[in-house]
Structures are given as structure tokens and as C-alpha cells.
């Protein structure tokens, strides 16, 4: 059986929606397990006393990256059939900065706000209503934002293509960077606990 199963016709759209729900349950479960249903836990990343966001995010990226890399090397997963968001570097720089600012102002990102709302947080309800209002505003303003939205198009480009390096080398570099980041994060947390013992 070849993967991605859906792309090889193993099941149709309707069954795909059931998978969406099931995979979403797994996603929400681990977000909440990690503590990402709490705005205070999430923003701690940006005050450097608890770097769980970085640790969870990069462990997840490395896990999924190694999985796709080895499955595709083994000929079990056709990576060309996995959807890649195209690169438009200009709006992605602006959007990334805005999202980062919105993260500290609001306390969540979209996925974590849903997890937080489901566990009863009222500020997450306010955040979700902000997303709805913001999305409506974005749709209304879209004619004016069109130019920015389409600026800096580079197509579905990958990091290995951009760096002119083999995929395996980039995979190795990302693992190296993540492990270095984890060591650094542990050291930062220890240092912070020494300076501010009351907060940990």
C-alpha cells in the first residue's frame, strides 16, 4: 500500500473528513498534554523562564521530518504528493511578525486557542472571537492587500533547494540545530530558576 493513502485513492473525501476529526483529536490531545491550553504557559517562552513551546515544537518538527524522510527513502511515502504551501516570502515575513506580536498580545495561536477554549479559558473565547473578527476584516480589506499577498513568489520551494544542499544534509542540520536548541533551553531555564527561584 502506497502513501499518502488518500492521494492513492484508498478512500474518498467523506472518509477524509473522518480522518480530519480523528487526527484533530490527537493534535488537540497532545497540545493540551503539553500545557498549551494555558496562555501563561505559552507566553513563558517569550519571557525565557519556561521554554516548553520551543521544545515541543522542535521535537514535533524533528519527529515528523525524520519520519517523512525515512519513509520516502524507503519508497513507502511519495513526498511529491504531500501538499506544500508555496513560498511568498514578503507576506510571510510580514505575517510572521504580526502573528508573533499577536501571540504575546493575545496569549495564543489559532490551534492552541481552540484547545484552551475547550478546557474553559474565557480569554481563549475572546481570542477566538478576535480571530473571527480579524478574518472578516482581512476578507473585507483583501482587495487592498492583494499586492502584498502575492509579493515575493518563489513557488513551492524547499529549504534544501534554496540552500543548494542535499535533503539528507538539511535534515541532519535541522536535527543538530534542534538538539543544540534543547541544550541551550535547558541551560537558560536552569539559569532563570537560579536568578528568580520564586517563579519556578
Amino acid at each position: 500500500m502506497h502513501a499518502p493513502f488518500f492521494k492513492f485513492g484508498a478512500f474518498g473525501d467523506e472518509v477524509g473528513l473522518i480522518w480530519a476529526f480523528v487526527l484533530g483529536i490527537g493534535f488537540g490531545f497532545f497540545l493540551e498534554r503539553a500545557g498549551f491550553g494555558s496562555a501563561k504557559k505559552l507566553v513563558s517562552q517569550f519571557y525565557l523562564d519556561d521554554l516548553a513551546v520551543f521544545k515541543v515544537m522542535f521535537t514535533a518538527i524533528v519527529t515528523a521530518m525524520l519520519g517523512t524522510f525515512f519513509l520516502s527513502r524507503a519508497g513507502l511515502l511519495d513526498l511529491a504528493l504531500v501538499y506544500r504551501t508555496p513560498t511568498f516570502w514578503v507576506p510571510q515575513v510580514v505575517g510572521g511578525l504580526l502573528l508573533g506580536i499577536g501571540f504575546v498580545v493575545g496569549g495564543y495561536c489559532p490551534g492552541t486557542s481552540v484547545a484552551s477554549l475547550a478546557t474553559g479559558r474565557l480569554d481563549a473565547a475572546a481570542y477566538v472571537s478576535g480571530i473571527v473578527l480579524g478574518t472578516a476584516g482581512f476578507a473585507l480589506a483583501f482587495p487592498a492587500l492583494r499586492g502584498l499577498f502575492h509579493a515575493g513568489s518563489l513557488g513551492a520551494r524547499s529549504l534544501p533547494e534554496a540552500l543548494h544542499l542535499p535533503v539528507g544534509v538539511v535534515v541532519f542540520l535541522v536535527v543538530l540545530m534542534a538538539v543544540g536548541g534543547f541544550v541551550g533551553a535547558q541551560a537558560l531555564e536552569r539559569r532563570f530558576a537560579r536568578i528568580h527561584p520564586e517563579r519556578s
Partner: peptide, 14 residues
């Protein structure tokens, strides 16, 4: 939180 959600929406859609 409401403001942050709106900012985030613009960031994510861009």
C-alpha cells in the same frame, strides 16, 4: 486577547 486574535488572523492569512 481579542486584539491579539485579530492581529494573529492577519498574520496567519498573510
Amino acid at each position: 486577547a481579542t486584539l491579539g486574535g485579530a492581529l494573529m488572523a492577519w498574520g496567519a492569512h498573510l
